[in-house]
Amino acid sequence: MTALVRRAYGASPWHLLLMVGVLALVAYAGTRLLHGGDPWGIAVWFVGAALLHDLVLVPAYTLVGRALRLVGRGHLVLVPAVASGLLLLVYLPLILGPSHTYVAKTGLTGEPFAARWLLASAALFAASAAVGAVRHRRARRDRAA
């Protein structure tokens, strides 16, 4: 049965189950959005996000990953860079400086986000550097022994 699904579908049945679940969730969210009107806008965002991911993001992070692997010790740079980049992407509007609406609506300045993102990024790279230093020392000790 497993082999049959794998031959027909190209991956394990668990993968198929997960994909069906995820697509059902997306479809449910999509129908909820339709209550707000503007079905074209929703379609553009759904299809646009898939295209952007497959045509721009996948090649971009594949290339970056390959390049870093050529340099060596790729994960030590890649891991904090990806985490920091994702935080930047999610909180971009607040990090760039909040909109007039944010300031008027919340009564807050929205000012700490840029500094906090920089500190979080610094902490990520520092942790990665610490891991690298420990690994380096251990490798040298092993060579000496």
Partner: peptide
Amino acid sequence: AVLAPHGRLPGEGADGFPVNTTAAY
């Protein structure tokens, strides 16, 4: 929770927690 929205308190005492919408808005 350094990056949660409304990450800073607007004031102290009875004003020491965030609002979704100010009275003016």
